[in-house]
């Protein structure tokens, strides 16, 4: 067994254990972002695809490599962007910053009331705003 393969196996072993231990602590709340994040990370297969596509080893390599680069780039770019989009949506009941303890609640309540009673409000508004 070559030294490089041996080192690779050690890396695989240790990374698997680290991965298991770290990911075990991810709460169910974040299971979907976790999946899209690990997906983006696994998009590092881009690195291998780049070498295949860019090292000028014949038409087949270049063609397969180019498709592979496209596919992995979709995963890397898309994966990170959508994980960010998801993580931005998660927020606690009371924001830790000094926006006042009940900052979110009245806000959401306000919109809820407005949209729910939109029917009656809309019917009433044009008449009151209309000078006639």
């Amino acid at each position: 067994m070559s030294a490089s393969v041996e080192a690779g196996l050690y890396v695989l072993l240790l990374a698997s254990f680290v991965g298991f231990e770290v990911i075990r602590r991810v709460p169910p709340l974040f299971h979907t972002p976790l999946m899209s994040l690990t997906n983006a990370i696994a998009g590092i297969s881009l690195v291998g695809s780049l070498v295949i596509a860019g090292s000028d080893r014949g038409a087949l390599s270049t063609a397969l490599g180019t498709i592979a680069v496209t596919a992995s780039t979709i995963n890397v770019v898309g994966g990170f962007l959508i994980t960010d989009r998801m993580l931005k949506m998660f927020r606690p009941r009371q924001p830790a910053t000094a926006r006042g303890p009940a900052a979110t609640d009245p806000a959401t309540t306000g919109t809820a009331t407005r949209s729910a009673s939109a029917g009656s409000a809309d019917a009433g508004r044009p008449r009151s705003e209309d000078p006639r």
Binding site: A15, G19, F20, T38, A42, I44
Partner: peptide, 8 residues
């Protein structure tokens, strides 16, 4: 990266 994705 593969090991992390795989174990996850």
């Amino acid at each position: 990266a593969g090991a992390l994705d795989g174990s996850s």
